[in-house]
């Protein structure tokens, strides 16, 4: 492992410019900028469409002949007002927030201990426990939700936020543990050894030495876990019945979509507002997010 890390740092500090300066501008436009523009337009168009639909007056929504569909004349806040004041939407937002924060905090706490134990206490069988954690990460929710529904029901937490707070860690803990193991591995052993020599207990080492050094890892894992729980759908759909306990994705889909007449404006406003919190969080912590995503793959 140390050898590969060395080569990695070497290649990262390799300040060679690359050879792209050899390509002349017309070629760069055709080979790079044009495809990139197409990619970006395609990847972002649904968001644009979502946003523009959310502020379009109903009269323009389907009248493509008199108004250009790509633009809006006289934007309206009616859909958003309807969403915020005449539906349970604010309640769903609050539920999603509570569930995501609780599940994330719970998973982070459990994962810190687990990752530290696997990576640094090195008890007998710690390597196989690490492998098991990785395998647990690969168990998808879509094969677990039926038996979990039975279990949740037996525990008497069916149709409550607790059902989600307790089941989300099933996919969060393996992920966070795996990520934090990688971070703990990069903290030098010597720091721990000198703390041990100074008489620190394992607990003190974890709290005073390891955790402060692993803050970037904690942020990465936390952000990613929060996003995963915010986006979770199948458990929330299965375990929650009553409108006041629904999360945003489930609420928007099951309560704002009714009958054959879709209120596209408020539906898109709901989608937009449900996405905003994670997008804002993401925009502040892009690098942490990317490092946790690629870290989970690379480790």
């Amino acid at each position: 492992m140390s050898i590969s890390e060395q080569t990695n740092t070497q290649t990262l500090t390799d300040d060679a410019q690359g050879m792209s300066y050899l390509n002349r501008l017309p070629r760069r436009i055709v080979v790079l900028y044009l495809p990139l523009a197409v990619f970006i337009i395609v990847l972002l168009f649904p968001f644009y469409w979502m946003a523009i639909t959310a502020v379009k007056p109903n009269s323009q929504l389907t009248d493509y002949n008199n108004y250009s569909p790509f633009w809006v004349v006289g934007p309206t806040l009616d859909h958003i007002k309807y969403l915020l004041f005449e539906t349970s939407y604010p309640g769903w937002l609050w539920n999603t927030l509570v569930v995501s924060v609780c599940a994330t905090v719970l998973s982070l706490a459990a994962s810190v201990f687990a990752a530290y134990a696997i990576e640094r206490i090195r008890f007998k069988g710690s390597r196989s426990v690490g492998l098991l954690i990785f395998l647990a990460y690969l168990v998808p929710p879509s094969i677990l939700f039926i038996p979990l529904a039975v279990i949740v029901f037996k525990f008497g937490i069916y149709d409550s936020k607790l059902a989600l707070i307790f089941t989300y860690p099933t996919f969060l803990i393996p992920f966070c543990t795996w990520l934090l193991m990688g971070y703990f591995r990069s903290i030098p052993f010597e720091l721990e050894e000198s703390a041990l020599v100074d008489g620190a207990s394992r607990w003190q080492i974890l709290v005073r030495v390891i955790l402060p050094l692993a803050v970037p890892g904690l942020i990465s894992a936390g952000i990613f876990a929060f996003t995963l729980s915010w986006n979770e759908f199948i458990y929330a759909l299965t375990f929650i019945q009553s409108s006041e306990n629904k999360t945003v994705p489930v609420g928007v889909l099951t309560e704002l979509v009714r009958g054959d007449v879709f209120e596209w404006g408020s539906l898109m406003a709901g989608a937009l507002f449900g996405s905003l919190p994670v997008v804002i969080l993401y925009s502040f912590f892009v690098d942490y997010y990317v490092s946790s995503m690629t870290g989970a793959v690379k480790e």
Partner: peptide
């Protein structure tokens, strides 16, 4: 950063779009 947006946004909500 903006390329990752489709991955960040809840699937159900982008699927609605």
């Amino acid at each position: 950063a903006i390329i990752l947006l489709p991955w960040v946004v809840p699937t159900v909500l982008s699927a609605l779009a």
